[in-house]
Every structure is written in structure tokens, then in C-alpha cells.
Write a protein that binds this DNA or RNA. Sequence first.
DNA 1: GCGGTATAGTTGTCGCGTCAACCAATGCGG
DNA 2: CCGCATTGGTTGACGCGACAACTATACCGC
Lengths: 165, 165
Amino acid sequence: MDDDASPRWLDDEQMRSWLRLQAVIGLLPALLDQQLRHDADLTHFEYLTLAMLSQADDRSLRMSDLARRTNATLPRLSHVARRLEDRGFLRRGPAPDDGRVTVATLTEAGWHKVVASAPGHARTVLENVYDDLDRDDLHAFTRVLDTVLAHVDPHDSFGLRTGRP
Amino acid sequence: MDDDASPRWLDDEQMRSWLRLQAVIGLLPALLDQQLRHDADLTHFEYLTLAMLSQADDRSLRMSDLARRTNATLPRLSHVARRLEDRGFLRRGPAPDDGRVTVATLTEAGWHKVVASAPGHARTVLENVYDDLDRDDLHAFTRVLDTVLAHVDPHDSFGLRTGRP
DNA sequence: GCGGTATAGTTGTCGCGTCAACCAATGCGG
DNA sequence: CCGCATTGGTTGACGCGACAACTATACCGC
């Protein structure tokens, strides 16, 4: 199956690191999801959707832009948007200038929901990831993530790597 | 909802890092899944299951142990094991000493499947994560992951933090 | 301004994972 | 030994996300 002529393997240090990375990738999202479900009755992705809207101009975004910022496919976002709309957290309407476009707008209830949920979410992130990292750790970590991102997100879909100092 | 009295927030550096970590967590698993699905017709989790069995004594493990090593719930593993058994990659049978226990054993076909898929998987991991990290990056990365793991995996379910040098 | 193509979203179907209910075997207190 | 709780696994129902098919609007050449 498309085997390389000279199959390489991870050395001991890389394997040690890889096992840990897999554990973090497996456990951290579940933890964030749990916290938000329990405290705010929101999926992490639902929270992310509302949070992105809350930071946008007029608290509104085109579905496509929202999908890009949340790293979601358009169908996925469409489903989630319907549920969030049913719960009264956002509205969807056609764009005046382009009839194909749908713009999602955060409602007042949605805004309050984000404001109420954000601190608990931030607290979870800080406690689990950043509280025990000193500045050197933090910088090294970010630099490594940037290196990885260059491969995993070659087209810079998130717009994260453009402003590297 | 259970707000702390003094809500904290991520500073700029932490936020920069967090956005990148989220991107990696969102994109890397999808990438590994794609590669294995395409090249080996296996889910990343199916591959992990077979790989763990391949490293165990007699290429056999109790379902509970296998679940722990793959970070899966028992129901999830049970479903996957049925599919893998249907495809002839593993067998399940009762344990002689304890009638409640089921032991999963890798078949010859399953062994060959792992051997055939492993190089492509390793190659993907190396190219996307480790090839561009020098030794200092690697060590710093592992250290940070260990720090994070101490929070997200407090009970050391993976048995990764016991042997830290 | 009319056909053809590209773009933006939505809807339906299917597969996987979670949760709860369930079944089977063990161990243990009397 | 005999309830009865505990442990190990499986099964079924439901929900979310991926993929494909579909609708509708806009753009483009002529």
C-alpha cells in the first residue's frame, strides 16, 4: 500500500512524545466537552460557534466564514446552526447583497449564553494546560505547534501563521 | 454557572498558543484517519486496536486491558471488535480462568494487516509532527505534554508518567 | 439577457460512539 | 451452599458528523 522503499520508524524519544501527544489529543477535547456540557449545556463545538459569532462585527458571520473559523464542514455547521436557532441562540437570514449567502447572527440570549459560559471554559483551559507552564515552556510549545501546523494546515485555513513574529 | 469569584482569562501569548493547539487537535487526527482509511482501509482507532494487540504477549489481551490501552470505553471497543472479527483480523474467546473475561487475539491476517499498515502510519506521523523538530524542540515538547497530562490524565490511565527519568 | 457553470447552503442517509439496560460469571457473608 | 452485590462484556437506541445529492442564486461569455 504505497509503502516507502525504506520504511522509517519513530525513535525512542519520538515515540515517548507521540504516546503523550496521542493521550492529550484523546483526553483534552473530551474534558472540555464535559465541562461545557455540564456547566452550560453546550457542546464544545456549539460553544465555539457562539464564541466566534460573539467576536465578529455585528455578532454576525456568513455561514462559510463561520465554518472556516470553527474548522467545520458546511453541512456540519448547518445542522448545528439549526439546533442553536431552535434554542434561540442565533438567527439566520439571507444576505441583502448576495441571495446565496446566509448570515448567522447571535441573539441577545446567545450573547448572554457566551458571556455566562466563557469564564468556566477559560478556567478549564488554564488549569489543564497553561497554569503550570512558565514563559519558556509556553514559547517553546507555541513554536512546536507552529511547526506542526505548517504540515497539518498547509493552506493556513485558520489564518494563524501569517503574522508570525 | 459555578463562576469563580475572580474570572481569569488567557493572556495574549496563551491565546496564541491555544488557537494553535486547537487547530492541531482538530486537524491531526483527521489527517491520520484519512491516511489509514485510504491506504489500509482502517480507522485510526481500528489500527490502534490491532497495533496494541500486536505488541502484547501472545498477541492477546483482555477486552478491559485493550480498552484501557486504546483509551476507549468498553462498549466502543466491543463494537469495533465485532467488526474486526467479522473481517477476520482478530478472534474473541472466553478466558479459561475467569468465565466473565473475553480475550481478543490477533489472527495471522490481523498481524499481516498491522505489518502492512504500520510503515505508512509511522511515515505520516514523522512527516507531519517530528521531522522538522530538532532535539531541543522534541524534549521541550515532551516535557510540556507531560505537564498537561498530569492534569488531563490524573490517574495515569495510560501508564505514561510512571517511568519519567 | 440567455444558457451554462460556479458558488452558498440545506437536506437525507449512513456509520461510529455514547449511554443505559441487560446478561453472565464470580466472590462473599451468613 | 445460597442470596446478592460486583465485575466483565455485549446489545440496542439515539445523536452527531461525513458524504453525496439537491436547490437556489450569482457570474460569465456571447
